[in-house]
């Protein structure tokens, strides 16, 4: 095993890794572990340093595990949906295969970033206690849930940005995932709008418009930067609410996601 290669790879992911590893420079690291420990022990010891380096603050670990919970949920949802026979029409396969691919990548990234601190994958109930009983047999329900999960994901990441302000590199990763969830959400919403015959539902969120009402509370907010911007640029309330997506607290998101999680 080539420890330097791993450090190099790690630095490719996290350009600031060397700086964060200052308390355990390569030299120190090798002195401490390389010469004295059996080769088999090195991966564990190294993983500990990586975790320390990557998700150094307790706040960041919490946020990343929270994100991982939601990404596990999305990943499992699309794996099941993409595998279900006669669910997704051929015309829309490419879209959900691409979304599913990203969720799998997000899980892999977060698991790697968290190392031993990563939570285990929960067991999910995508029927949401029966509310979405035909989620993997009725395409309309599947797309409804997809749009809801993606919009919730966007709101969830946005709600955590402030908690990561002291961890700039992790904040940047979170933002890079956040905008991908928003891309997914826009396309899922447009599919849902067509399937549900709801012309008021667009790729962006007008007021509180969405396929599952419970998750859009607060999206109709008109107060930005402490100012009610009603009438700004002589635009309609609809346009103003569309122009700003709103965050959700962790508590609100977990209340929404709760029924999806068996244990």
């Amino acid at each position: 095993m080539d420890i330097f290669k791993i450090i190099d790879q790690f630095q490719k992911i996290d350009g600031d890794a060397a700086g964060r590893l200052e308390y355990a420079s390569r030299r120190l690291f090798m002195n401490k572990f390389g010469s004295k420990l059996a080769a088999a022990a090195i991966p564990t010891a190294f993983a500990a340093v990586v975790n320390k380096a990557f998700a150094q603050s307790a706040a960041a670990v919490d946020v990343l595990n929270y994100a991982l919970t939601l990404e596990y949920l999305e990943d499992e949802f699309y794996k099941a949906g993409n595998a279900a026979a006669n669910l997704i029409p051929a015309s829309d396969k490419a879209i959900f295969t691409q979304i599913g691919k990203h969720e799998t990548q997000h899980v892999a990234f977060l698991v790697k970033a968290l190392g031993t601190k990563a939570i285990a994958k929960p067991t999910f109930d995508f029927q949401y206690g029966g509310a979405f009983g035909d989620v993997f047999t009725n395409y309309k329900t599947f797309v409804t849930v997809s749009s809801a999960l993606e919009d919730t994901g966007v709101r969830a990441y946005k709600g955590q940005a402030g908690a990561l302000i002291a961890d700039p590199q992790i904040l940047e990763y979170a933002l890079q995932v956040h905008s991908v969830e928003a891309r997914h959400a826009a396309v899922a919403r447009r599919l849902a709008a067509t399937l549900l015959g709801n012309a008021a539902m667009k790729g962006w969120i007008t007021g509180k418009e969405g396929a599952v009402a419970a998750i859009y509370a607060g999206e109709d907010n008109m107060t930005q930067g402490g100012v009610n911007i009603k009438g700004l640029a002589s635009k309609t309330d609809a346009a103003i609410t569309e122009a700003f997506d709103e965050p959700l607290t962790k508590e609100a998101v977990l209340a929404i996601a709760g029924p999806f999680i068996k244990k």
Binding site: L175, A186, A243
Partner: peptide
């Protein structure tokens, strides 16, 4: 954050 996700949409 409120704006960037709209740009992504």
């Amino acid at each position: 954050g409120k704006i960037v996700s709209v740009e992504a949409r």
